[in-house]
Amino acid sequence: MTMPTHLDPFTHAQWYALGRDEDFPDGRKTQTRLLSQDLTVLRRGRTIEVTLPQGQPRPTQHRYGHVWTTFSDTPRALYDIPEFEEVERRLITAGAVHVRCSGLRAVENFLDMAHFPFVHTGILGVEEHAEVEKYDVSMDVERDEIWATNCMFFQPVAAATAKAGGTTKYKYRLPHPYSVILYKTCPPRPGEWDLIGLFIQPTEEDVCIVHSFVLVFDQDNTDTELLHFQQNIFLQDRIILENQIPRRLPLDMRLEIPTRADASSIAFRRWLKANGVTWSTVRAGDME
């Protein structure tokens, strides 16, 4: 298989979500794109086949409510999310939303707390409480992933279950260049964390499909109420993402000046750079 120009080995080696299990009805072919290549997805009974245009099959797996594939014959293992095994949690998958930006930009926006008061006004933030307090960023060397911890933010309606405003604790996990998982205080169960995450399908260098999920302890809201909450938030982000220039992610720290609140995205960009990621990033010579 020939690799598209600029496709680096680390990006090539990942597993990617292509959609929810139920998005692929039995016997119907679905055309999609991944890393600037065409793919066909076909369900036959309980098996899903993913093939390249000349019919070469690619491996698949079903995890976290989604169908995954990889272009690599020696892929980097798909990360574990142990919370998916906890039976009391509810999984809501929010479907595929197309966005005209680099998937890496979508990851970064998800990490960014500073935008809450201005983009998710009245829900995830208020303008009177705009400061991002200092948080910690660390590297899990064994698993080769990034964690941002001890994040705190004042939120008027942190979740569909929130009854009043309050300071929400957050943790962020970056186990994959195109996945990001948020752990946040669970209003009905102090001490537990609710999970919200993005599995991003980078279709082109500057276009992506965002598959998102909510994995929560919640007995008050219906699945559809949780779905509406999640989609409302993500579509507020989408208009911001589509207006970022350039659409690909700059890894050179001189191109976009970070503040202390951006510690997690600084770590993310360094991690991408250390892993030799060039696909979907701004490269030397792109900007004059």
Binding site: R20, E22, D23, T93, A94, G95, A96, T222, D223, T224, E225, L227, H228, Q231
Partner: peptide, 10 residues
């Protein structure tokens, strides 16, 4: 009454 228009096509 929220309806799952997408992705559920309710």
């Amino acid at each position: 009454e929220p309806v799952d228009f997408f992705p559920g096509c309710e």
